[in-house]
Design a protein around this nucleic acid. Structure first.
Lengths: 192, 192
DNA sequence: TATTTCCTAACGACCGTTAGGAAGGTGAAA
DNA sequence: TTTCACCTTCCTAACGGTCGTTAGGAAATA
């Protein structure tokens, strides 16, 4: 399926060079077709970009749901800390996550609105998963903000994003160091 | 001084549209000169970009040093939490910080090396400031990782980046909520 | 007078995009 | 079973536009 290959190649280029930096010629070249052939599959660069974004986010959403499902019998601290490692390992060489993060933080100005409309439900989804997780565990593991689990979920998301970003930015090794530095503090501060 | 105005205008455009997205024509237009006149001051777009980056980082380094100096009589938790707000203020109001962050995470590929050489000392500087701060306060405020303050500093930087990232992405209001969620956990986990 | 700063004009390169058509497969009608 | 129309997918050629950059000269400044 050339269409999927095209999408995945495009998303790699968008992740590494940004919307403006990525060139349709180079993408086509890597796929092994000519530039105008792209238009047989997508009606514009914007269309290709938004399709790649949609594709990445769906894929990440699926992975996230599957992680929470797999780890549902683990103790809370394992679920939470494992969540980091899961993403670090499972994220297809981190290209998808890199693309998502780059686009979330620095969207192409002309697509800012559309991008936002895709992202808001995505973040809500993550937040909701975490909030529900914390509530489900309240009988076995008390945490800070017992009256407002969404607040604890937000705190977790913050350090997740901090370390994720580091993963994208300076690679696995620095990421491991950060994780080891932050996790004991976080868990010690969260658990009651 | 047209040269400085040119630099500041350029850095604003680079911050908002990225290296590839920013156009010399638009920058010149905003400054009130014609595009080729830029070349009387900078010998290429790369030169302009790197000059703007250098300028921003020097400026931010000065401000950071001055923050640590001003707050040196505050208790540790005030210094640290105040650092967040300072950082937030810089990122939100000052395009310089946005430019720095964007360039650090997603540099133009062709300038990746040069950019890295500028950034490594910059990050070391931040890390060193924090490490020294923690060591200076050890008699008044014990913290986790007493034997390795640089680790505690790293943890702090992670949270700072996580919240700041949120600031770039969804603005002051969301940022405040994140700060309120994460700070009590962090301080409770860090302080002995 | 010498240098800096700006201009107009124009360069070649690349951009995203469209036109128009060839090749190949699919499926229904003859 | 053959034929024909219809897609889809790819191509070459070329479009108008913008990009960063240079040449060469005028104006301002020192």
């Amino acid at each position: 399926m050339k269409a999927t290959l095209l999408l995945e190649t495009a998303l790699k280029h968008f992740a590494e060079e940004g919307y403006e930096g990525a060139s349709l010629s180079k993408i086509a070249e890597e796929v092994g077709i000519k530039k105008p052939s792209i238009y047989a599959h997508y009606k514009s660069k914007d269309d290709l970009f938004m399709s790649a974004l949609h594709y990445s986010m769906e894929s990440q959403k699926t992975q996230m749901a599957s992680y929470f499902n797999l780890s549902r019998h683990q103790p809370l601290d394992k679920v939470l800390s494992g969540y980091f490692h899961w993403f670090a390992k499972e994220t297809d060489e981190n290209v998808q996550m890199k693309f998502i993060i780059r686009t979330a933080y620095f969207p192409p100005l002309k697509l800012e609105k559309e991008v936002g409309q895709l992202f808001d439900p995505f973040l809500d989804d993550m937040h909701r998963h975490l909030t529900r997780l914390l509530r489900e565990r309240e009988r076995h593991q008390k945490v800070l903000y017992e009256d407002d689990y969404s607040k604890a979920a937000l705190a977790f998301l913050t350090i997740a994003e901090g370390t994720m970003t580091e993963l994208v930015y300076s690679g696995q090794e620095q990421y491991e160091k950060r994780f080891e530095a932050i996790w004991p503090i976080f868990w010690r501060g969260l658990a009651l």
